[in-house]
């Protein structure tokens, strides 16, 4: 470990990479310092940087191990992995699995959830930052945050047992009156509840708090001088939002929505409980059933005994990992420095 003594003020520029020991030993500036203290410094520094590296390693290892486990099964696969709608792993010697329907159901349910949640989250975030009375805005925000504290299995139960019957009439109305639009025609299920439609509504509720939280934070940071500029021109409250808050907060709102999309793509148990399985392929309707990547893996979890069939599910997990990685990375890039987490 390096022998250097750390004395610079925080925030000052240091060397590029703290865990690489410096090659030229720095002369001791304070010869009287006890050696144990120097060892303490380097041990502590090592532990801290090591933990940082561990996080980076964790992501790399997730990708690596999933890949290692997926490859043998992908080699043994008889179907086209990307275009086949079937996922049959019953016979370990004759695997035939593809992710077409998993991908479609995952994307349909998540995007539908996003379409429902985005406008509501925008409204809630604006309400909390620009409309709610000052003293109430914090407790109100806390209430919305509580939505995120409810476990997903409870959303699943509520979704299928309570919500699904309640919104079935809406589904029926859409199906009857707008059935000529492919999204609302009768899907691959005999019923209209427990569909992607139902699942999407449940997912929308689940991702609402994260989109709201991120947007609210960014909206609240709108510079005062921009708000005052609009007000001094005689802008109404809504016009101030249009001229100052939204231009400033747009990227944060989009980033928050991407984070919400990431959540929806990976949501497991609520989707597994709410969306029914279907024996026939996906028909591009919101009234289809089926499995998402996550719900398929969870549904098969109890049968993870033979390596090859398990590897088939792990390859689905790998695709989900890549998908959420991309979505979350995009969210971070869009947000720039404005959003944390």
């Amino acid at each position: 470990m390096s022998e250097r003594i750390e004395q610079r003020a925080p925030g000052s520029e240091g060397e590029e990479d703290p865990i690489v020991p410096s090659s030229s030993p720095v002369p001791e500036s304070t010869p009287r310092r006890a050696p144990s203290s120097r060892r303490g410094e380097s041990v502590f520094r090592f532990l801290a940087s090591g933990s940082g590296v561990l996080v980076v390693a964790a992501i790399a290892l997730i990708g690596l191990f999933l890949l290692i486990q997926a490859v043998p099964s992908l080699m043994a696969n008889n179907a086209n992995f990307f275009t086949s709608p079937e996922f049959s792993t019953g016979d370990a010697n004759n695997l035939s699995f593809g992710i077409r329907d998993l991908f479609l159901v995952t994307v349909f349910s998540s995007v539908f959830a996003l379409v429902l949640a985005m406008p509501v989250a925008l409204g809630v975030a604006l309400f909390l930052t620009n409309y709610a009375p000052k003293q109430l805005s914090r407790p109100f925000a806390y209430v919305v945050d509580l939505l995120a504290a409810v476990p997903s299995i409870i959303y699943g139960l509520w979704g299928i047992l309570v919500l699904a019957p309640a919104i079935e009439p809406i589904a029926r109305w859409l199906n009857t009156n707008l059935g000529w639009i492919f999204l609302f025609r009768t899907g691959n299920l005999p019923v209209l509840s427990g569909t992607i439609f139902t699942g999407g509504v449940v997912l929308a509720v689940m991702i609402l708090p994260i989109i709201t939280a991120v947007s609210r934070e960014v909206f609240a940071q709108t510079p005062r001088f921009q708000i005052e500029a609009a007000k001094a021109l005689g802008a109404t409250r809504w016009e101030v939002i249009r001229m100052a808050t939204l231009p400033y907060g747009r990227s944060g709102y989009i980033a928050g929505s991407m984070l919400g999309l990431g959540r929806a793509l990976g949501e497991t148990i609520a989707v597994l409980i709410v969306i029914r399985a279907s024996t026939s392929p996906m028909t591009f309707s919101l009234f289809d059933g089926g499995y998402t990547f996550a719900s398929l893996i969870a549904s098969a979890a109890s049968e993870f005994s033979q390596p090859l069939p398990t590897g088939a599910y792990i390859s689905a997990g790998l695709v989900l990992f890549v998908l959420t990685f991309v979505v979350n990375a995009l969210a971070r890039v869009i947000a720039g420095g404005k959003v944390n987490g």
Binding site: I59, I62, L66, F304, G317, V327, N328, A331
Partner: peptide
């Protein structure tokens, strides 16, 4: 850290399994 925050729990579980 941001990416890890977005890793679905099922993927984390699969990783530990693998």
């Amino acid at each position: 850290v941001d990416i890890l925050a977005g890793v679905p729990s099922i993927v984390a579980a699969l990783f530990v399994f693998a």
